[in-house]
């Protein structure tokens, strides 16, 4: 049988998917054991037990100075910034994207400026944001919004333009006004597509969050990583990175499930 016709069944799929993870873990454990055998005080590749200890210390014991459970506090702080910013971005993208994509007048007015503005590297704006908005949460949220909203707007606008013209004509022959077409024809069809776009923007959103936290903050996952970097505390950094990855993965999964459950028509319409 040809290789390209060999399809793993369910059990095999799971096993094969687990394989690279297991290999990575094994390679790390071997490397860590080798270095620790040479120098028990090595900080670069801490053992799993050391990392477990650190996680226990950060997640399950209150910090003696502040009385906070640091890891949960960091998570809460980062997630609230991230989710607030993404909610603002999504809303802006939906409103402006549909306006730009649906109305030629709006497209002519705002299309070019959004196109140019989305090319500004958002991190280059960070100092400006810190100067204008101070070092608090507002500047960080603003960075994530600027970094993600402009691309989302362009994406939504393009997807509105991709709607078959027949649909818009048909709606008009059913007597719909521009407002009604936006509300009943365009908006509901954009929501599931927007979920796809937001999923792709999760990566950049995390990037901007961690960059902003690294520079000016007193809590947050990015802040903690950059703080303990001074002590080469790899036993904290590595679990934090894994935790951030897991959070991002779960957000992606949640969005995918939301798309499937809330828009049952979308899979069929996309395939057609």
């Amino acid at each position: 049988m040809r290789l390209l016709n060999l399809k793993p069944d369910r059990t095999w799929s799971i096993a094969l998917a687990a394989l690279p993870f297991a290999a990575l873990l094994a390679a790390y454990m071997m490397g860590s054991a080798m270095r620790l055998a040479e120098n028990p005080n090595d900080k670069l590749l801490p053992s799993l037990t050391a990392m477990g200890e650190a996680v226990k210390h950060y997640a399950l014991e209150p910090d003696p100075r502040s009385g906070l459970y640091l890891m949960w506090n960091d998570t809460l702080s980062s997630m609230s910034l991230l989710l607030t910013a993404l909610a603002i971005s999504t809303f802006i993208a939906l409103v402006f994207g549909i306006l730009i994509g649906l109305l030629p007048i709006m497209g002519a007015t705002f299309g070019p400026v959004v196109g140019v503005a989305s090319m500004v590297p958002p991190l280059a704006l960070l100092p400006i944001l810190f100067i204008i908005m101070g070092l608090g949460d507002a500047a960080k949220i603003a960075l994530i919004v600027i970094g993600t909203a402009l691309k989302l707007i362009r994406d939504v606008a393009l997807r509105v333009e991709d709607l078959p013209r027949e649909q818009l004509i048909k709606a008009q022959t059913l007597g719909a006004s521009t407002w009604q077409i936006g509300l009943r024809v365009v908006l509901p069809q954009m929501l599931p597509r927007l979920i796809d776009s937001v999923r792709l923007e999760l990566g950049p959103a995390w990037l901007f969050l961690i960059a902003a936290e690294a520079i000016a903050s007193d809590s947050g996952l990015g802040y903690r990583i950059f703080l303990v970097r001074r002590y080469l505390a790899m036993d904290v950094i590595i679990p934090y990175v894994i935790w951030i990855t897991l959070l991002a993965f779960l957000m992606d999964l949640a969005l995918r499930l939301l798309q499937r459950k809330a828009f049952p028509w979308f899979a069929g319409a996309r395939a057609a």
Binding site: P164, E166, K170, Q172, L174, F266, A272
Partner: peptide, 20 residues
């Protein structure tokens, strides 16, 4: 000068709304 409710239309494709 624009499509309106006094003229109905059926196209070869994309005549119905996929989300409804």
């Amino acid at each position: 000068t624009e499509p309106d409710a006094d003229r109905g239309v059926v196209f070869q494709r994309y005549s119905v709304f996929p989300h409804l």
